[in-house]
Amino acid sequence: MITKLTHLCVYVLDQNSAHDFYVNKLGFKVHTDVPMGPGARWLTVTPPEQPELEITLFPIAEGGVFDAETVRTMKALVRRGTFGPAVMTCNDLLATYEEMKSKGVEFKKPPTREFYGFEALFVDDSGNFFSLSQLNP
């Protein structure tokens, strides 16, 4: 029986920029940041209220199964906004939306009423989009 999700992978174009975005704009905490040889780094962050879920900020770079063509294709797809890796939630979407906007986060959709509550869509610094929701009580 599967019990929990421990790691979630988000492909990013630049790890330093992703670190700044997830920590300083979204308020996530760095869980692990370990150098893995020249130019490589294992970097995971956790949502502010969910310290057990590590989000891997995985760079799209050559090495292992990532050959040059795969890297080119992946980067183009991420940049184009093809991937929506996760849905996030908050206590109050309007307050969170205001705060994120004041920090320069780009929203594809402002808070909108949906049948389950409110939802907005934002993009990270690479182009991945995330749904941010406030569920009905």
């Binding site: 790691h7 992978c9 692990t32 370990v34 150098p35 893995m36 040889g37 490589a40 294992w42 891997t56 995985f58 090495g63 292992g64 199964v65 990532f66």
Partner: peptide, 15 residues
């Protein structure tokens, strides 16, 4: 450093 990384990711990156 590999003790920090789940095996599947280490393999995917060639580490």
């Amino acid at each position: 450093p590999l003790t920090a990384v789940p095996n599947c990711f280490a393999e995917a990156r060639g580490w």
